[in-house]
Amino acid sequence: MASQGTKRSYEQMETDGERQNATEIRASVGKMIGGIGRFYIQMCTELKLSDYEGRLIQNSLTIERMVLSAFDERRNKYLEEHPSAGKDPKKTGGPIYRRVNGKWMRELILYDKEEIRRIWRQANNGDDATAGLTHMMIWHSNLNDATYQRTRALVRTGMDPRMCSLMQGSTLPRRSGAAGAAVKGVGTMVMELVRMIKRGINDRNFWRGENGRKTRIAYERMCNILKGKFQTAAQKAMMDQVRESRNPGNAEFEDLTFLARSALILRGSVAHKSCLPACVYGPAVASGYDFEREGYSLVGIDPFRLLQNSQVYSLIRPNENPAHKSQLVWMACHSAAFEDLRVLSFIKGTKVLPRGKLSTRGVQIASNENMETMESSTLELRSRYWAIRTRSGGNTNQQRASAGQISIQPTFSVQRNLPFDRTTIMAAFNGNTEGRTSDMRTEIIRMMESARPEDVSFQGRGVFELSDEKAASPIVPSFDMSNEGSYFFGDNAEEYDN
């Protein structure tokens, strides 16, 4: 783990906690998980779902989305002020799938948001429990990260689609708070800032007046979040320049895209947490497990152990491969979309394939898809080993990566060399080191050039047997250095459309 220093740990961010010791953190995270579980059980009762239907990941996603929508204050306010045809701002819903006479049927349900809020609060001892809501947002974000390569979004903001390893959390809503900021990748933060800068260039009043003052505060806050992700002084200094700019424009845009590229080699610290679907927490609570009393951590053995003992089902389209669908969801559960496939294969105990080789589309089923041909199958979400999630980018030494994705962002704290394609990355730096950030740029390029592919990161860190909950005997895996390590390699994943 990167030293926490003055930073709060993510469990504290996750639970809005002030400084807590490890036991208190485990208890408050457990409380959050228990609340999600209780809410899910109650919703299944309301909807009269069978046990099997309640364990269907598509039903879980609909129920999670309903509660997130019920608590989305800004959108609710907007919907009330701008009524649109056929949208009731006070209601929320989605597809629920039921097994009827041996076939899967889709039923569109509609609930009062007020009623959903009441059920959620009741499951969370009367609190709004925003930490639990954020947790579900991060699960949705991790699922998107594993399912889609955001080529269009990258290109629109002047970045290269091969930089997708920097895009963790790119679909997280803005209201996801400190826990959300911690899991956002460098590219995601750059993209958010670039969008602001572009608006400022096109709209003279963007930075002016009372609204402009708020915009400015948001801009500086985002700059500080991004600065905190960088691990070298030169990158941090460049972020200070971007933040202090009187009138952010093209120079800042250039600096930010430069920094994003540099992060492929001088990786930023991005938190990883295993956020599971509500249909995993519900049955665990129903079986009598007391998360608050037992304590829970999002970055240790607990999620692995929970998945070892969970039964989750998914709808499967006619030509999809259930094992591939399982891999997709497994990666999402562990926030591992940008991790090295060699490491993932070792931990999972079966070969993890790149996205383009998977015969599976996303987990969600569109409303126009034919239910007649839908089957369902068990998702295999178990693992051979477990490993500690990392909050750091690993040290800054790398190795060759593949054509589709030119770097990785480690999820697990496991000893290995970190793949990246130096030639491709360095070719993108057209040696432009003039301007006010020239000395920093020169320094950053120097550090990137001296990074050695064969150097090892996370020295001495290994994986653990599932029986080793105290992480007492690390097993340090050895990897084939020459092997392909990137998930979005030469990829044809669908595009994420909101």
Rank of each mutant, 00 (worst) to 15 (best):
M1W: 12
M1H: 13
A2S: 08
A2F: 00
G5M: 02
G5T: 09
T6I: 09
T6N: 10
K7M: 03
S9A: 15
S9T: 06
M13V: 08
E14C: 04
E18A: 15
A22P: 08
T23K: 00
S28P: 06
S28W: 03
V29W: 05
M32H: 12
I36F: 12
G37Q: 07
R38W: 13
M43I: 13
C44V: 12
E46T: 04
S50I: 14
D51Y: 09
G54V: 10
L56K: 03
I57T: 08
I63G: 02
I63W: 06
E64Y: 07
L68D: 11
L68E: 04
A70K: 06
F71D: 11
F71E: 07
D72L: 00
E73L: 09
R74N: 11
R75L: 09
N76P: 00
N76V: 03
K77M: 12
Y78R: 06
E80Y: 06
E81N: 01
H82S: 14
A85Y: 12
K87M: 12
P89A: 15
T92R: 01
G94S: 02
P95W: 05
I96M: 13
Y97M: 02
G102R: 08
K103Q: 06
K103A: 15
W104M: 13
E107G: 10
L110G: 03
D112S: 05
D112Y: 12
E114I: 08
E114G: 12
E114D: 12
E114A: 08
E115W: 14
R117H: 13
R117W: 06
R118Q: 04
R118V: 15
R121T: 06
Q122R: 14
Q122Y: 02
Q122P: 00
A123G: 14
A123K: 01
A123H: 08
A123Y: 05
N125H: 01
G126S: 10
G126L: 14
D127S: 12
A129Y: 11
A129C: 14
A129N: 13
T130L: 13
T130C: 01
L133Y: 05
T134A: 14
H135K: 04
H135I: 06
M136E: 05
S141A: 15
S141I: 00
S141K: 01
N142C: 08
N144C: 14
D145N: 11
A146W: 10
T147M: 06
T147G: 00
R150S: 09
R152N: 08
A153I: 04
L154D: 02
L154H: 10
G158L: 07
M159F: 00
M163R: 00
M163D: 00
C164K: 12
C164A: 09
C164Q: 15
S165M: 07
Q168W: 05
G169W: 06
G169C: 15
G169P: 04
S170C: 11
S170F: 07
S170Q: 09
S170L: 11
L172P: 11
P173S: 15
R175C: 03
A179P: 08
A181W: 13
A182I: 04
A182P: 04
V183A: 15
V183G: 07
V186M: 15
G187E: 12
T188I: 10
T188W: 07
V190F: 02
E192Q: 11
E192P: 03
L193E: 02
I197K: 02
G200L: 09
G200Y: 02
G200D: 07
G200N: 06
N202R: 07
D203R: 00
R204Y: 01
N205G: 13
F206Q: 13
W207I: 11
R208N: 04
G209P: 07
G209M: 07
G209C: 13
G209D: 11
E210Q: 09
N211P: 06
N211K: 09
G212L: 09
G212F: 09
R213Q: 12
T215L: 01
R216T: 10
Y219R: 00
M222A: 04
C223E: 09
I225M: 12
I225Q: 15
I225F: 12
K227G: 06
Q231V: 04
Q231A: 14
T232E: 10
A233S: 05
A233N: 06
A234L: 01
Q235G: 13
Q241G: 01
R243I: 08
R243M: 13
E244C: 05
R246T: 11
R246S: 08
N247Q: 14
N247G: 10
N250G: 12
E252Y: 06
E252D: 15
E254N: 07
D255I: 03
L256Q: 02
L259N: 03
A260P: 06
A260N: 03
A260S: 15
R261N: 10
A263H: 05
L264N: 07
I265D: 05
I265W: 03
L266I: 15
R267C: 08
S269H: 14
S269T: 12
A271I: 00
H272S: 07
K273T: 07
K273Q: 10
C275S: 15
C275N: 05
L276Y: 09
C279V: 13
V280F: 12
G282T: 08
A286T: 13
S287R: 15
G288N: 10
Y289W: 03
Y289G: 07
D290F: 10
D290Q: 13
E292K: 15
Y296T: 04
L298Y: 06
G300M: 09
F304E: 02
F304V: 06
R305Y: 14
L306D: 00
Q308K: 15
Q311T: 14
S314R: 04
L315F: 15
R317K: 10
P318Q: 12
N321W: 14
N321G: 01
P322F: 06
A323G: 15
H324Q: 11
H324T: 05
V329G: 01
V329Y: 00
V329T: 15
A336L: 05
A336I: 01
A336H: 01
A337H: 05
F338L: 08
D340T: 02
L341M: 13
L341F: 03
V343W: 08
I347K: 02
I347H: 00
V352M: 14
L353N: 06
L353Y: 04
P354K: 10
P354Y: 01
G356Q: 03
G356A: 14
K357F: 15
G362F: 04
Q364P: 13
I365L: 11
I365K: 04
A366W: 05
S367K: 07
N370E: 03
M371P: 15
T373M: 14
T373I: 14
T378Y: 08
L379Y: 01
L381Y: 01
L381R: 03
S383H: 10
Y385V: 04
Y385W: 04
W386M: 11
I388V: 12
I388Q: 04
T390S: 15
R391Q: 04
S392I: 07
S392P: 00
G393E: 09
G394H: 08
G394I: 02
N395V: 04
N395R: 12
N395I: 14
T396Q: 06
T396H: 15
N397P: 08
Q398Y: 02
Q399L: 09
R400N: 08
A401W: 01
S402F: 10
S402H: 14
A403M: 13
A403V: 04
G404Q: 13
Q405K: 12
Q405I: 00
I406T: 13
I408M: 10
P410E: 08
P410I: 02
T411N: 06
F412H: 06
Q415P: 04
Q415D: 02
R416S: 06
T423N: 15
T423V: 05
T423F: 14
T423M: 00
T424V: 15
A428G: 11
F429K: 00
G431C: 13
N432G: 15
N432C: 14
N432A: 08
E434W: 01
R436L: 03
S438V: 01
D439Q: 03
M440A: 01
E443D: 13
R446Q: 12
R446C: 10
M447F: 11
E449Q: 12
E449P: 04
S450N: 14
S450G: 11
A451W: 03
R452W: 04
E454C: 07
E454L: 13
D455I: 12
D455K: 06
G460W: 11
D468L: 07
K470W: 13
A471R: 02
A472G: 15
P474Y: 06
P474L: 12
P474S: 15
V476P: 02
F479M: 14
M481L: 08
S482Y: 11
N483D: 12
G485L: 00
S486R: 03
Y487M: 09
Y487G: 01
F489S: 10
D491C: 10
N492S: 15
A493D: 05
E494Y: 04
E494D: 14
Y496D: 10
Y496H: 11
Y496G: 03
Y496A: 04
D497Y: 15
